[in-house]
């Protein structure tokens, strides 16, 4: 049984909305990073869905998704390293308390 494309897109949009909401409202940096992962995964779901239904060769979309997963892992690594460094210096990981460069 084939899941219709619309269902998958609605799911991905929901996932994206949750990620966006988290990225916008979370004060905790780690929370923001997790939310960004959610957004990226919503994109990945879209890529797989479109590649399965419309592309001539479904592998094209899968390759894209694998690259995005890799980049997300890299981004998470760098992001977590920054969080660690920030915590050591400022003793906090809340974004609104990190205001050194604010006017």
């Amino acid at each position: 049984m084939l899941i219709p494309l619309q269902h998958i897109l609605i799911f991905a949009a929901g996932l994206f909305a949750i990620g966006l909401y988290g990225a916008l409202v979370r004060r905790n940096v780690i929370g923001i990073l997790i939310s960004i992962e959610l957004i990226l995964n919503a994109v990945n779901v879209n890529l797989i869905a479109f590649s399965r239904t419309t592309a001539l060769n479904p592998v094209t979309g899968q390759v894209f998704a694998v690259i995005v997963i890799t980049l997300a892992a890299v981004g998470a690594t760098v992001g977590l390293a920054i969080v660690l460094a920030l915590y050591r210096v400022r003793r906090t990981i809340y974004t609104d308390e990190v205001n050194l460069l604010k006017w």
Binding site: L20, A23, L24, V25, R26, I32, T95, D96, N99, L101, K102, W103
Partner: peptide, 17 residues
């Protein structure tokens, strides 16, 4: 104008979105 420059990335992201 400087009220716009909150310094909070999330605000900017919100405006962007």
């Amino acid at each position: 104008l400087r009220r716009l420059q909150t310094g909070l990335v999330q605000n900017y992201m919100f405006v962007l979105f």
